[in-house]
């Protein structure tokens, strides 16, 4: 049998610092860093626990990593942990972002800065299209489900309908189809 190191119960300070390190480490998403910290570095969760609990975090709407920090915080320190862990995750990046916002307020009108931000936005959009492509590619039964992607683009980007309505309608139709398919097997 594999011997696993006995996980140390993190106190509030450890939770805050652990999630701070995660929050500050990633660009364009910190989930891989969260996994490394929780599973590999500190042993606060096993790989299976991580996968199961991440399931709910991804199932519910909202920022997955924040949801995950709430779960881990609750597990070790109850309500206090569930407050301190997401705070640790967000405090550092929040301050950095505000600092950047202040810089932008002062220098944002300079043509050089505007040009740079345009370039970053263009690269960012390229990354978003790539992400959409990759996610679309991993969908099973593409012929049945990709029309719902098209419907979403039409409703959101073209018609500019409010997203809550679009999501409710889309989820009823797309989820309904999935529910029916799951029942046929």
């Amino acid at each position: 049998m594999e011997t696993t190191p006995k996980p140390v119960e993190p106190d509030l300070m450890a939770l805050f610092l652990g999630f701070s390190s995660v929050g500050l480490s990633g660009f364009g998403g910190v989930l891989p860093f969260a996994r490394r910290m929780l599973v590999e570095e500190r042993g606060w969760m096993t790989a299976e626990e991580f996968n199961t609990q991440l399931g709910l975090c991804q199932f519910l709407p909202g920022p997955n990593v924040v949801n995950l920090s709430v779960v881990v915080g609750k597990r070790y320190q109850g309500v206090a942990g569930a407050i301190v862990a997401p705070l640790g995750m967000l405090a550092g990046p929040f301050l950095i972002v505000l600092l950047l916002a202040m810089l932008y307020d002062h220098f944002g009108s300079l043509p050089l800065v505007q040009g740079m931000l345009r370039g970053v936005a263009a690269a960012g959009c390229g990354l978003l299209f790539a992400m959409a492509w990759r996610m679309g590619n991993s969908i099973k039964s593409k012929r049945l489900f990709l029309p719902f992607s098209a419907f979403t683009v039409l409703a959101i980007a073209w018609m500019r309908w409010p997203m809550p309505y679009v999501m409710v309608v889309g989820l009823v139709l797309s989820g309904g189809l999935a529910y029916w398919m799951l029942g046929r097997k």
Binding site: F129, A132, S138, F148, S149, T152, A157, L171, A178
Partner: peptide
């Protein structure tokens, strides 16, 4: 069913955002 159903909508949303 919800997890399967939400995936194509998310694809559309991210494409729309870009």
């Amino acid at each position: 069913a919800i997890s399967l159903g939400v995936a194509p909508l998310a694809v559309g949303l991210i494409f729309s955002g870009a």
